[in-house]
Structure formats: C-alpha cells, structure tokens
C-alpha cells in the first residue's frame, strides 16, 4: 500500500536496528511526507475548485428591464443569475414612509436614499430573497400580504420589510440587498 507520510516513531521501530545516520533519514522522511502532503493538497485544490461556478455560469449576461409597463403601486419579478429581482414602482406615500424613518430606529440602519438611485426614487430594485433563510417574501403585488410597514412579508418565518426593503420585524438579520443596476434611460434599467 502507498503511504509516503511515514511516521517517524514507527519507521524507526523496525527490528533491523537503526541506520547509520538517523538525522539524515529524519530529514528525508520529513521531505517525503511534506512533499506528498503538498501534492495531495494540489490535487484536492483542483478537484474542489471544479465545483465552483464554471466559466459559462460566470459569464451569464446582464438583464435589461423595461419599466414603462409597470403601473404605480405595481411590481414585477425578473430573473437574474437565477435569483428573483423585485422591481417596484412605489407610490408617493410609500416613498414618504420610507424616507421619514430615522436610520437609528432600524435593525440594519440605512437611509432610503442609499437604496435607490437619485432622481429615480419611485423605483425600488431588490434581490427578492429573505435574508433569514432564503424564501421569497410576499408583497411585490399590491394584492399580496405586505406586513405592518406595507413593504414585504416573508411567509416562511414572518420577517417584515418596509417600503425600502429594510428589515423591521422578525428573524431576518439584514435588509433585502440591492443588486447592482443602472438606468440606461428613464424607463429602462440594466441589472448586473
């Protein structure tokens, strides 16, 4: 059987007695053991990294969303990198409610301005995945249950988010993340 990681104690215990130069042998044993360990680590590195996203997954292109058809108060869901992205056209009341909250009152303090693009406050773009355990919260459609703060309500464990997607109540630790996106024109955004 192959085993280059010879342990010093065992290998000296052969009943044929000690070789002439034990210190040189110790060094060789160390080199053989370390060399085998490094080689094994190299193999492990390559096979384990094969489980990381492949080039085609990493190259998945960005998504463009046309905002024109979305009525005030409505939201749509688009898929980006396999994740649901909420795009919501907020009403004036919702925007005001979001802006009036003092960040210090929040579990995960953030101003509404930091979560939308300046000049496009009516558009809220969020990654629609509850930060608790990954369910998709309700609330993107007006008919959905939206919780006490009129934003989003996660049906799995009752986390509630406000109209800026910030966590207000429940077990979720952080706000709904804002994906990277930019306005291509007033009625078109590009996510990714």
């Amino acid at each position: 059987m192959a085993d280059t990681t010879a342990s010093t104690a065992d290998s000296h215990g052969g009943h044929h007695g000690h070789p002439a130069d034990p210190s040189k042998r110790d060094l060789l044993e160390l080199m053989a053991g370390a060399g085998a360990a490094i080689f094994g680590a190299g193999i492990a590195w390559s096979v384990v990294s094969s489980m990381n996203p492949a080039k085609d997954v990493l190259a998945l292109s960005s998504v463009e969303v046309d905002l024109a058809p979305i009525q005030e108060g409505q939201g749509i869901v688009v898929s980006w990198q396999g994740k649901p992205i909420f795009v919501r056209h907020r009403t004036k009341e919702e925007i005001k409610a979001a802006q009036d909250v003092k960040p210090s009152e929040l579990n995960d303090p953030a101003t509404d301005a930091s979560r939308v693009k300046a000049g496009h406050e009516k558009w809220l773009v969020l990654t629609g995945i509850c930060t608790h355990l990954g369910c998709i919260p309700l609330g993107n459609k007006p008919a959905d249950l939206r919780g006490e703060w009129g934003g989003y309500f996660c049906p799995c464990h009752g986390s509630q988010y406000d109209t800026s997607g910030r966590i207000r109540k429940g077990p979720a630790p952080t706000n709904l993340p804002v994906p990277p996106y930019a306005f291509e024109s007033d009625s078109k955004i590009k996510i990714g």
Partner: peptide, 11 residues
C-alpha cells in the same frame, strides 16, 4: 515489516 520497507519502496 511491510512498513517502512515496502511503503517506501512503493512510494
């Protein structure tokens, strides 16, 4: 004994 004589030779 198999080890270390043949472990090292196999290596």
């Amino acid at each position: 004994p198999f080890h270390p004589f043949y472990t090292i030779k196999d290596s």
